[in-house]
Each structure stands twice: as structure tokens, then as C-alpha cells.
Amino acid sequence: MSPAPARRARRRLGWSSYAVLLSLVVLAVVMLIPFVVVAFNAVKTPEEYATGGPLSPPQGLYLDGIIDFWQRVDFGEKLLNSVVISASVAVLAVVVSVLNAYALGIGRVRGRLWILVVFLIANTLPQEALVYPLYYLWTQLGLYDTQLGVIVIFTVIQAAFGTYLLSSVLGTFPRELLEAARIDGANKWQVLLRVVVPVSRPTLAVLVVFFFIWTWNEFFLPLVFLISNETQTVPVALGVLQGQRLMDPTMSSASALLGIIPAIAFFLIFQRTLTRGITVGAVK
């Protein structure tokens, strides 16, 4: 770089740069305020809340409200349900996506463009247009109000997206690798398991993370399909309680905090995969 533009850039670091920075910082703070307010009130005693209102910072760390709420809704069970459902969907949907994308992206079967359109449509359909027939069929099959029933549905919905994405990724898979494996006498399964899957592992990891979080956050279908306490996921349990309007303010914020914590934990754990992955998914 020549020195001239560098000097210009430094000179420009005047008040206007700081004004832009400041307004972005203000924006970021505004975005975070709801989280802070919720966290504050979740650790207040009811008396503190009654006297100080929702805005005063907490005097100490009062965890009884959270513990109360945890026990009342058996939150550990809800967490477990969410983990079981989301993890199963993430793994199964990636398996199905890989199989589909192997046939479409590498096998280039006839009519693959139309098949891809079908998968794309399957992913954009409103779930409202599927919910009643699924509800009816799953009741007949004994899958209603079971986690397996929800796992099957979301495996298909997530795999529809995964197929679409992976097919275009595998469409550019290095042909020499496939040919070489075939010459070494590998059949299609061996090529898939020993060449395609290991080489695409980074993309598959992104998909697993995405499917996990998307399924964790799902609300509509789990709300319809998981009606008993023993099967409900975290968002459904919290959403139903909120809908009943039975909670006092500190309990509300305790419940919100318990809903926020796992989401933030995933965000921190998977942040790098996520930001890389979002851009993979966006422009294809």
C-alpha cells in the first residue's frame, strides 16, 4: 500500500468516525438491554421487585425464583427432551441429506433439477399446510405426542434444505478423487463413506449445527404435536406457560432467562461455525 491513502485514512479518523462508532455502540447496547433487564429481574427477590420495580439492578444473587421455576416445570426434563429431539434430527437429517445429495450432486441422476425444486419447495412450504393431515396421520400411527413423531417430521424438513445445499456443494466435488477411488475398486457405498463424507466433513459439521439449533428453536409443530408435559421441548413449555398468563413478573423473567441461556450457550460454542455457515447457506 502506498503511504498516501494510509495517511488519508488516519486523518479521516476524526469526529465523524467516532460518531459512527458511537451510534453503533448505542445500537448494540439497545439490542442487549432486553437480555440485561431479564437477567436482572430473574435474580431479584419478589420483595425487591415490588419495591424497586423492574429497572433497578439486583441487590444480590437470589436464585430461588429460578430454582422454583425449574422445579415447577421440571425444566431438566424439558432440556433433555429438546436435546434428544434436536440432536436426533441434526444427525438423521444430515444422513438423509448426504444420501440425497450423493445421488443428485455426484450421481447426477436424470431429472435432478426438478427433484431439487421439489426439495426446495418442501423447505419453503408453510407448516400450516401440513399440520392437520400430519396430526391426523400421526394419530392413526400412534406417533402423535411422541418425540419420534416430531423427529421424523423435522428430519424431513431440515433434510429438504440440506439436500438443496449439499447437492450444489457436491456438484463441485473433485472428480479425480471419485475416479481414483473407483479404479481402486471401491463401490458406490465405499466411495460415499470413505471419500465423499470425509472430504465434505466441514460442510456437514455446519449442517449439523444448523439443524440442531433450528430444531431447538422450532415452535409451531412441536406445540401441536407435543401436548403432554413429558414430551415437551423448552420453547413449547415456556410458550404455553406464557400463553396462560399465570406467571408473576419475576417468574416470567426467570423462565425467559432459562430459555435464553441455552441459546446463548450454543451461540458462543458454535459462533465460528455459525458465521461461516450462514454465508454458505445464503448465496448459492
Binding site: 438423509v96 441429506s97 444420501l99 436424470r110 421439489v118 400430519l134 421424523v152 429438504a160 460415499l192
Partner: peptide, 26 residues
């Protein structure tokens, strides 16, 4: 190419059961 179709079968069956049939039923 044709033999790759086998790999589509699980995905196709699931798609049929969870999306296509319910869609037309709806």
C-alpha cells in the same frame, strides 16, 4: 447414473410421507 437412484429412496419415501401426501390431503 441409474444406480445412484437407490440412494434417493430413503429421502424420497420420507418426503412423500411427511410433505407430499399431507400437502395433497390438506
Amino acid at each position: 447414473r441409474a444406480s445412484y437412484l437407490w440412494f434417493l429412496i430413503p429421502g424420497a419415501v420420507l418426503l412423500l410421507a411427511v410433505i407430499v401426501v399431507p400437502l395433497f390431503m390438506n
